[in-house]
Simulated scan of single mutants.
Amino acid sequence: MTANILTVDDSASIRMTTRIALTNAGYKVTEAVDGADGLQKMKSGSFDLIVTDLNMPNMDGLTMIRSLRQMPAYMGTPVIFLTTESDGDIKQQAKAAGATGWLTKPFDAENLTKIARKVLGR
């Protein structure tokens, strides 16, 4: 069974790069432009992994994670931050909010798919 992955990023080029890397690895990818759009897509779909940016308009990644962790269907869903931020305090906030892992931009597509396989167990 192919895993469904939701990528959430306000940058069209990052969404495209992420989508290409993950679809080439055999995953089904849905894109969202910010945290609010991501939450809306989560309510109408089912995702096995969320890959999200931190800094976005309308709703940032931390707020989105806190909201999705309140949704029974997504309490245990892995969430990977894909962001330019590398500050330790922000990483701690992300972990406390429920993030599973962290990958700093610019990212290596092979590393992203390796992390996806690891957290998905496939």
Results as ranks from 00 to 15, higher is better:
110 E>N: 11
16 M>V: 12
25 A>E: 06
95 K>N: 13
29 V>E: 07
114 K>Q: 10
122 R>P: 06
120 L>A: 08
15 R>P: 05
60 D>T: 02
30 T>I: 10
40 Q>N: 09
114 K>R: 15
34 D>M: 10
112 L>F: 05
85 E>K: 09
78 P>L: 08
74 Y>G: 03
79 V>M: 07
100 T>D: 06
54 L>Y: 13
45 G>C: 10
90 I>V: 15
89 D>A: 12
19 R>M: 13
44 S>K: 11
79 V>Q: 01
80 I>L: 15
100 T>R: 04
14 I>W: 02
5 I>W: 11
45 G>D: 03
54 L>I: 15
52 T>P: 00
38 G>A: 06
86 S>L: 10
16 M>E: 14
21 A>T: 03
36 A>P: 05
29 V>P: 03
45 G>I: 03
64 M>E: 05
106 P>C: 08
102 W>H: 10
1 M>E: 06
59 M>C: 02
17 T>V: 15
104 T>Q: 14
66 R>M: 14
119 V>W: 11
33 V>H: 10
21 A>Q: 02
34 D>Q: 02
118 K>C: 12
78 P>K: 06
86 S>H: 13
42 M>A: 01
80 I>G: 00
42 M>P: 02
102 W>A: 00
112 L>V: 06
36 A>G: 07
10 D>N: 12
50 I>D: 01
14 I>P: 00
71 M>G: 04
122 R>Y: 11
47 F>M: 08
95 K>S: 08
13 S>C: 08
95 K>I: 15
99 A>N: 09
70 Q>V: 11
77 T>A: 02
53 D>W: 05
55 N>R: 13
67 S>R: 14
99 A>E: 08
62 L>P: 07
76 G>T: 15
62 L>C: 00
4 N>V: 06
50 I>N: 05
22 L>G: 03
71 M>W: 15
88 G>E: 15
44 S>R: 10
19 R>P: 00
73 A>S: 03
5 I>H: 03
74 Y>R: 02
